[in-house]
Simulated scan of single mutants.
Amino acid sequence: MHGPASPGWLLVVLCAATGTYCLLRMRSRVEEQRRSAGGEALMGFGMAVMAVPATAFAPPVWAWPGYAAVFGAAGLRALWAARRGPHHLHHLMGTTAMVYMAVVMSAAPGGHRHGATGVPPLTGVLLLYFAGYVLLSGARLVPVTATGAAGAAVAGGTGVAGGGAPRWGDRPELARACRLAMGIGMVAMLLGL
């Protein structure tokens, strides 16, 4: 995560922008949108702070256990919420990755953990999951016909019926783009671990 400064700052901007959009989505009229947007905002801002290049800011030693505690609590919440739908399992994977990265960073704040032994197994599993998630999310963003898109918006729970356009915070394709951006950010952070 603490590689060259320019890609690190780009990752910070991507994650902070995603977190900001997710905060705005919390104003949605749709209850499920608000619930998931809160967890996604936490992930976006947490990833942004974690991605700050070490040359700009070296977190105090207590920061990494604090990260692990915050994201561990968010993971327990996601585990509890998983009984409502499979989307929360993705939140659980995200919080697990954040806890894992915090633990790794607390053990070696300078970054690189691979060495001659290769990629640690848990890093590899998380990389495979998030790379697959990015590919699947990207495929879901492929445009569909106008009739299919309108039907998907109503079926997606936006609360819009009768042909009215959903509010920008309730648009499912924007929520998917937000999740895609965070997935890409997670892959980049895990690759730099």
Rank of each mutant, 00 (worst) to 15 (best):
Y67C: 10
V61I: 08
R167N: 13
L141W: 10
V104W: 09
G185A: 13
Q33R: 15
L135M: 13
R140E: 14
Y129L: 03
G163Y: 05
A16H: 06
S28L: 00
A56E: 11
P143L: 06
A17Y: 00
H91C: 04
G44Q: 02
E40H: 15
M26V: 01
R140G: 13
L127I: 03
R25E: 12
H114I: 10
A97Y: 04
V12D: 01
P121G: 14
G156M: 03
R179Y: 15
V144H: 03
V142D: 01
L10I: 04
G156V: 01
C178R: 09
M43E: 03
A188E: 07
G111R: 10
W80M: 09
G111V: 10
S106E: 10
R25H: 10
L92Y: 12
C22M: 14
M93Q: 15
G169P: 07
A102V: 06
L135D: 05
L10Q: 12
V160K: 11
P109E: 01
A102K: 06
M182C: 04
G185L: 02
A161W: 08
R176F: 05
R83A: 08
R167G: 14
T145N: 09
L128T: 15
A188S: 02
P121I: 01
S106F: 13
A108M: 11
C178N: 13
V125N: 10
L23D: 00
G159T: 04
G148F: 09
G159W: 09
P166L: 03
A54G: 14
V142N: 07
A146N: 11
R77L: 15
G192R: 13
L89M: 14
L135Q: 13
P143E: 00
A116F: 14
P166S: 08
P7D: 11
R84Y: 15
G164T: 14
G132V: 09
G66E: 02
G3F: 12
A102N: 06
A108E: 15
V142H: 02
V187I: 07
A150C: 04
G3E: 11
S36A: 12
L136N: 09
G183N: 00
V30R: 09
G192T: 07
M50K: 04
W64H: 05
G8E: 03
L126A: 07
R113N: 05
R171F: 04
A181Q: 01
Y100R: 08
T158M: 05
P59M: 05
S36Q: 08
L122S: 01
V119H: 03
E32K: 05
A51I: 08
R140H: 14
L180M: 08
S137H: 06
A56V: 05
G110W: 10
M98K: 01
Q33P: 02
G8S: 09
W64R: 10
G94D: 02
W168P: 04
